[in-house]
């Protein structure tokens, strides 16, 4: 996705006649439009009920995919979570607050 013209949600991928020459990117900050979450093959599902709010997942997440508001874990940024499972491995809750589910088994919203 080097295409600077393409925005989130835009379906059409430009053809060779439309693209800037030589793969140059003309827009600044276009990395913002690149949703690395689409690399993910396993999705962590988080249980608010089981969560003890220790924030170890937030500390260990190698991206910045754990969303924290007012000092509390509130959810996962699936646009950027790559599904590595570190949150699940590090979760100390007696009943693990994360469950890894294959993306193939998840029904499209």
């Amino acid at each position: 996705m080097t295409n600077p013209e393409q925005k989130i949600g835009q379906k059409k991928e430009l053809g060779w006649k439309e693209l800037p020459r030589g793969g140059v990117v003309l827009d600044t900050g276009s990395a913002r439009d690149y949703e690395t979450g689409d690399w993910r093959s396993f999705r962590p599902l988080w249980s608010k009920e089981k969560c003890i709010q220790c924030l170890r997942c937030w500390v260990f997440c190698p991206d910045a995919a754990i969303i924290v508001e007012d000092g509390k874990m509130v959810g996962i940024d699936y646009k950027h979570c790559k599904g590595c499972g570190i949150c699940r491995a590090e979760c100390p809750a007696k009943e693990n607050a994360f469950e890894m589910v294959s993306e193939a088994d998840i029904e499209e919203d």
Binding site: T2, L14, W16, L19, G23, V24, V25
Partner: peptide
């Protein structure tokens, strides 16, 4: 400003 040499994967490398 422009950027040269970004990652160019399955969906665009071929067009370039």
């Amino acid at each position: 400003p422009v950027m040269y040499g970004p990652l160019d994967l399955q969906n665009y490398y071929f067009e370039h």
